[in-house]
């Protein structure tokens, strides 16, 4: 029988998702795929902070006077991460489209205007 799900399960899942995203961001030529991989890494971090908020925060904030305020800090962090991710992907894709219009390529290996 499988062990009950705990913090470690969520963290290992988060680490695996982050590593896959890191590989995609480092190894892919297509700038859109690089952006997709960065989104995967954002998601991995969100899973980790929300898991910490669920499993670690209750035990560590129980001694504080107003517990409820601190329990959900991880979830608020995740809200901000999602906001920044939205801004990042909008600007990133605008950049990709602008470069595509100029150079007719979305491959990061061919975006070497400053090298020439």
């Amino acid at each position: 029988m499988l062990a009950p799900i705990g913090l470690e399960h969520f963290l290992v899942l988060s680490g695996a998702l982050f590593s896959i995203g890191l590989y995609g961001a480092l190894a892919k030529k297509n700038a859109v795929v690089v952006l997709m991989s960065i989104e995967l890494m954002f998601n991995a971090v969100n899973v980790a902070v929300v898991a910490f908020s669920r499993y670690i925060a209750p035990a560590t904030t129980a001694q504080l006077p107003d517990t409820a305020r601190f329990l959900l800090t991880g979830q608020v962090f995740a809200v901000f991460v999602i906001t920044v991710a939205a801004a990042e992907v909008a600007l990133g894709l605008a950049l990709v489209l602008a470069i595509y219009r100029l150079r007719a390529t979305v491959h990061v290996t061919e975006m070497n205007l400053m090298k020439q």
């Binding site: 695996a16 896959i20 590989y23 480092l26 190894a27 030529k29």
Partner: peptide, 25 residues
């Protein structure tokens, strides 16, 4: 971007990146 037909190729750091990501995991 109509670059779909070029597929999803990797750059020359593919092996290094795979090794790095696997080691990190």
């Amino acid at each position: 971007t109509r670059d779909v037909f070029r597929g999803n190729p990797s750059n020359r750091f593919e092996r290094l990146a795979f090794f790095l990501a696997g080691a990190l995991m």
